[in-house]
Amino acid sequence: MDISRQSTELPEENERGPRARTRRLMLKTAIRLMQAGLTPSVSDVAEAAGVSRATAYRYFPSQAALVDAVVDEALGPILKWKDRSPDAGERIESLFRTSLPRLDEFEATFKAALKLSLDQWAQRKSGAPEGEPQFMRGHRVELLRNALEPLRVQLPAEEFDRLTQALSLIFGIEALVVLKDIWGLDSKESEKVATWAALELVRATMRHKNKEG
């Protein structure tokens, strides 16, 4: 199997005891497989990691639970992002500058998670019996709301939500799919376009507010 050249290294944690080490081994194995373009099942990861299936399912009872844990690991510093600037534009730029290189580094992993989400949607759409729990995604909502917090008191709730929703279209792996796979941009160019678009949305919203005011 050809492994992607994208990094499979994750931040080291304080591991205590065999349970923590086993879980860590499974996560590292899962992200290695996902960086290779796969969307592994719990059994796939157990086999690749040399762990029994019974043990693997004690840690991750479903594929959705496994992929959710891997995504959180891959997001890493994005989930810890904080910015105290009173300027929403500066905070949005900070969030994009922090997030997009990380999304690019673990691009294959996030695409594998996206594939799982789309596959589950297709199964539900076809009326197939529901099997594993649904893989839920949604970190971007909280992150964008935090970035836009300075505008919460300046904008009506409806406009605040609309801006957050609009930004969510260009914040995430989907934006890289469009910019890199469709437009053929490289990582740096993709980051510039996405960040520019985000800042323009914020500026346009504020111009509209000031014009009305």
Results as ranks from 00 to 15, higher is better:
L38Y: 14
R16G: 10
R203L: 11
I92N: 02
R24P: 05
R19D: 09
W121I: 11
Q63G: 14
E13M: 04
E73F: 11
D44P: 11
K82Q: 06
Y59D: 08
E189T: 10
V153E: 14
L100F: 15
E132N: 05
V178W: 01
E93L: 06
E73W: 13
K115Q: 13
A46D: 09
R97E: 10
A64D: 00
N146V: 06
K125V: 14
T22L: 15
T29G: 02
R152L: 01
L176W: 07
M206P: 05
R140W: 10
L100E: 13
V153Y: 07
E174F: 01
K209S: 12
R97A: 10
G172W: 01
E174H: 07
R97N: 08
L114I: 01
P86I: 09
Q35S: 06
G131R: 15
F110T: 00
V193P: 11
R152H: 02
A20N: 12
Q6L: 14
T22P: 10
N146M: 10
E191K: 03
L179Y: 10
G131E: 15
V193L: 15
K180D: 09
E130F: 08
A198W: 00
S41Y: 08
P11D: 01
Q134I: 12
L169C: 12
R124F: 08
E132T: 07
A112R: 12
T205A: 06
R124L: 08
F110R: 01
M1Y: 07
E13F: 03
V70N: 02
P150E: 02
R207M: 10
F135L: 09
T109Y: 05
K115M: 10
T8L: 02
P40D: 03
P86Q: 13
T205K: 01
T39H: 05
L118T: 11
V178P: 00
A65Y: 07
M136C: 04
R19N: 12
A30S: 04
Q154H: 15
G76F: 04
A175H: 05
D104E: 14
L148S: 00
A175I: 02
I170T: 04
E149D: 14
A204T: 14
P77H: 11
V45W: 02
T164C: 14
R152S: 02
T8W: 00
A74S: 03
L25G: 10
L151P: 01
R91H: 09
G127E: 05
T8I: 10
K192A: 12
P11I: 03
V193N: 12
S126N: 13
W196N: 12
D72V: 12
V177I: 15
L169P: 01
